[in-house]
Design a protein around this nucleic acid. Sequence first.
DNA 1: TGTGTTTCGAAACACGATTTACAAATCGAA
DNA 2: TTCGATTTGTAAATCGTGTTTCGAAACACA
Lengths: 410, 410
Amino acid sequence: MTKPVVGSMTAMRHLNTTLVLTTLRAAPGPVRVSALMRETGLSRPTVEALVDSLGGQGWVEASEGRPQSGRRSPGRPARTYAFNARAGWVLGVDVGAHKVSACRADLRGRPAAWARRAVTPATPAADRLSAARAAVDDVMAGAADAPVLAASLATPGAVVPHRQRVLLAPALPGWDEVDFGAWAAGFLDCPLDIDNDANLAVLAEQAVGVARDRADVVFVLLGERLGAGITTGGRLLRGQDGAAGEIGYTRLPPHVRPPAGYGPLEAHVNAHAIVAMVEAELARPEVPADSPLRRRFAAGGPGDRLPALAASARDGDPAALRVLRTLCGRLAQGIAPMLLVLNPELLVLGGGVSSIGDVLRAPLSAALAEQVLFPPELELSALGDRAVVLGAVHAALARFEDTILAEITA
Amino acid sequence: MTKPVVGSMTAMRHLNTTLVLTTLRAAPGPVRVSALMRETGLSRPTVEALVDSLGGQGWVEASEGRPQSGRRSPGRPARTYAFNARAGWVLGVDVGAHKVSACRADLRGRPAAWARRAVTPATPAADRLSAARAAVDDVMAGAADAPVLAASLATPGAVVPHRQRVLLAPALPGWDEVDFGAWAAGFLDCPLDIDNDANLAVLAEQAVGVARDRADVVFVLLGERLGAGITTGGRLLRGQDGAAGEIGYTRLPPHVRPPAGYGPLEAHVNAHAIVAMVEAELARPEVPADSPLRRRFAAGGPGDRLPALAASARDGDPAALRVLRTLCGRLAQGIAPMLLVLNPELLVLGGGVSSIGDVLRAPLSAALAEQVLFPPELELSALGDRAVVLGAVHAALARFEDTILAEITA
DNA sequence: TGTGTTTCGAAACACGATTTACAAATCGAA
DNA sequence: TTCGATTTGTAAATCGTGTTTCGAAACACA
């Protein structure tokens, strides 16, 4: 749209416009012109002209009232200005094996609506897309007041950069044939980015989770599948084929073959493997018949098994603790090479298994300290099963910042 | 020095100044003003004012002569301007276990002088520093016409970011106690950066080697030691403690303990291990007494053993080929997790062992294809044992670009 | 020797930010 | 209530920077 004028006055105007706008956006509440002058280093007439212009375009709102109810100062009361976070929406969608989630958020990243739909790993690609479309329609209901400015979609598998296609998603039938760009063109009039779910989860942890202000972070997404999202220097590491962080496919000594569709390491530590470990432990003769783990494990349904393990471990049941030690040993051995290669400052554990993260933390830390030269800090995901969809929201937000903000002229 | 004025006219002047200067620097030879107008998008008066000012400061030279002897065009002959690559020097120093190298280069990165000094792994830190100082003095002899504007130093071990100290260099006595900043302050009046040798080697391959225009590259430095230099998105991956890429410390199944000071994987594949593999192969009863490998191996000294292996392999000696297959199997198994994590586009093999890289290439490619989901391209280092010191030169050059160029005002 | 083409140099112009001056609005104290 | 202090809002003058415009200069080619 705007021609790429370099070094001219209009370029400076652009710079100053986005400078003022981003300063306003970073502020928690309304800001007076004097504060903007201080923050941006610009003069009063300049700042006023810019906020006027931005106000005319709807990006900024003038709030006549008090700055923010803080201390009153002498002198003529200041008009204050605030970034209009409702000037548009961003959309995050997480298309997973078992569920599809969507979240609509304002331009500050504050969620305004959530939706989810259940699917199964066997759901055909077309139906999965329909579920995603339905979730998007849900969150967009009654939000026609402002346009969607950017959207981002999370999916398992490797997302080929710049191609909007998925590789390596053997668990989802037909998923590698979907053209997401064409799909979204039907109902979304905004840029759409596709990315791997673990990649987006690490972005979420950086934006609003436990990895705030951390540059080199590894997010391990462990549930039925195993994958990692990696940032280096604050930037996402995607790799040539979008397959960076696919540690589930790490080779293991070939005693056992993984089930079709799973990587060797993945099948060795995922939720199924944990259940199998418990069963193997319970089959040992020295485990008493009234072991808490045995009782709890028999009592619940399939969804209660991991919590049963965690509860027994919290009670100090030696059998449960042994299982956790075994699991953490395997996990540590699997991710140690990654930590050696990346030397990150923080390792975040997320995904379904992180629901029992509190009992994993100590044994995993111990196992990592043995295996890794410089072990990173270990944290549990703060965002639960919303990490991925929140990551999509923040990826869309980043797209808004990079692309849309740059096009705003004044 | 210059206050960080944002969005003011002087800021634009800065931008345009560096724009013109970098354009001139990127050009192979003298450039006319018209070409600069085209490249930068600026108008003639602006460009002329800037080159005038830059000329006054010595950064640019006006060459009255022909543009560059190319086709002559009608009209008044143009004055041409060229970046003055001799306005200063950059310095690269590689302090290794067996040798210390230095290289002085002009501001376009073209080497102007080389020097090297032999040391041993047992050389005390003070003597190693003296050798480095002597090498620097060698390359600086007779180069007092222009100042050294940036310098960079390569060392084995993990370099703690922003601390100019080395961790994890067990092979070099006292090396982790050296304060390089204080050392350099004595005779270098310019910024000095310290970095890991493999890290700098990958920079060199990106600048002038086989990795030009590649963003995600892994450089495996294999000789007596094993380390990797990694770039992701064109930027160096250093890690929290500067220990990224230290894959030599990858754990192996504990049949054998590594010698003190070596990592497990390192001791399993390095030059010593290769010699041991050959000896084990020769001890096998089915290897004939007149095997070419046996003859060549017995003939030469310690330095001729790797070439002997390579020569035998080129002749098709089955024993030599078996050794290479074994070596490449071990190596592939060791670096496969790294490639899985990073999914790079290119793997460069360098270091002492790359002298036999031609016979390693095929078996290593084959082994990697078996182990890795998306195997990268495999190339041999084009820079030999100068990769590291050239990398230091280019790191200094990058520092010049980032820091010094930004301070040039006009 | 002329014509066309390109470059050079200076003047006039446009644009944006700053500085300066002054009016407006509120608080606090007499 | 009144007046000064203090901060904000507004308008004009000023300055710095890049662009446009125009004519002169210098060379190639016919």
